[in-house]
């Protein structure tokens, strides 16, 4: 009872926070640019915390996270454009616009599911491949996904895919409130909650056991193969959801958005926040997204300053902002 009250409190806090934001956005207290950044913060939180499952908690080195994001982005976008928008390739809208608010979360989840299955491409080789060799497999998967999309001409190939703007407009036709912001908030909360429940459960502690010592974990009856499949599918699935949101927030995607550069960006957020710290990932995603925007006037030099900062971080505080602690650890009185 006390426990449920305890978790309830976080939900209520998050709901209040979300309502404030949605209310503020609806009454246009902040301009469209700030709104966009806020949505990117949400998406980056999903991306960095989901990559943290693999790179932080499981201690592997996955550098192809953007590939899974691409799978989710394309699956969700194609489904939505096919269902709710008239498009040159996919013809007129299949369903009436009233269904969209119900089906949009569902298409996001389907996109996530597709990305999770793409995650199997990494999960299965990971049974007997570790470390640098696994890193190369994730890299190859990133290239394979990008290259496959480039070769499917019906979804635009290298030219990219658009039409998501119409889908978002269709949402606004039903009821004119900032829907994309709402969905970003819902799915960010959902992802963080799922990851938190996963890594703090007895079952999820298995991935930490794999990081510390795989053989010992196996002896202690952790089903390492199942654990790896779960971790990779969860991580890539959530990345897929983030991709779906990303596509609809931006309104246009092309394979060039999901390169190794994007994966590197997500990796930077994970290591900035601290490996194996969920609150670290959230904090660094917020911090990093804002920093990227603040440094935008620097243009090219931005990408000299950011790596330099990370190098200095690695030298003087290699464990990142939070190390492997959670934010709760700083408030001992609040501990259960």
């Amino acid at each position: 009872m006390l426990h449920s009250l305890h978790t309830c409190r976080y939900w209520i806090l998050y709901a209040l926070f979300s309502f404030t934001i949605i209310f503020g956005v609806h009454h246009e207290w902040v301009n469209a640019y700030i709104q966009l950044i806020m949505m990117f913060i949400g998406i980056n939180i999903i991306l960095s915390s989901s990559l943290n499952i693999i790179n932080g908690y499981m201690g592997e080195f996955s550098c192809g996270h953007a590939g899974f994001m691409a799978v989710g982005a394309y699956v969700t976008s194609v489904l939505n454009v096919w269902l709710f928008a008239s498009d040159r390739v996919f013809g007129p809208a299949v369903l009436s616009g009233n269904w969209i608010l119900l089906l949009f979360p569902l298409t996001l989840l389907i996109g996530g599911l597709a990305a999770a299955f793409a995650g199997l491409l990494v999960a299965i080789p990971s049974f007997n491949t570790r470390g640098d060799y696994l890193a190369i497999i994730t890299l190859a998967v990133n290239y394979i996904v990008k290259s496959s999309i480039e070769n499917i001409q019906t979804i635009g190939g290298a030219r990219g895919f658009m039409g998501m703007r119409k889908v978002v407009n269709a949402m606004g036709d039903v009821w004119d409130i900032p829907w994309m912001m709402i969905f970003v908030l819902i799915f960010t909360g959902f992802s963080v909650w799922v990851i938190w429940r996963f890594v703090s459960s007895t079952y999820g502690k298995g991935i930490i056991a794999i990081r510390e010592d795989e053989i010992a974990a196996e002896i202690m009856s952790v089903n390492t193969q199942q654990m790896k499949i779960t971790a990779f599918m969860l991580s890539s699935g959530l990345a897929g959801i983030a991709g779906g949101l990303f596509a609809h927030v931006l309104g246009y995607i092309n394979p060039g958005s999901f390169t190794i550069m994007k994966s590197t960006e997500i990796m930077v957020m994970v290591y900035l926040g601290g490996m194996g710290s969920l609150s670290g990932s959230v904090i660094s995603a917020v911090f990093f997204t804002i920093l990227l925007e603040l440094l935008r006037p620097l243009q090219v030099i931005k990408w000299v300053v950011i790596p330099l900062m990370l190098i200095l971080l690695m030298m003087f505080r290699p464990e990142g902002i939070m190390g492997n602690r959670e934010i709760r650890d700083f408030f001992p009185g609040k501990r259960k």
Partner: peptide, 11 residues
């Protein structure tokens, strides 16, 4: 060190 290397490349 690997991350540092990656960042040096970007720089």
């Amino acid at each position: 060190v690997v991350i540092t290397a990656l960042m040096c490349g970007l720089i």
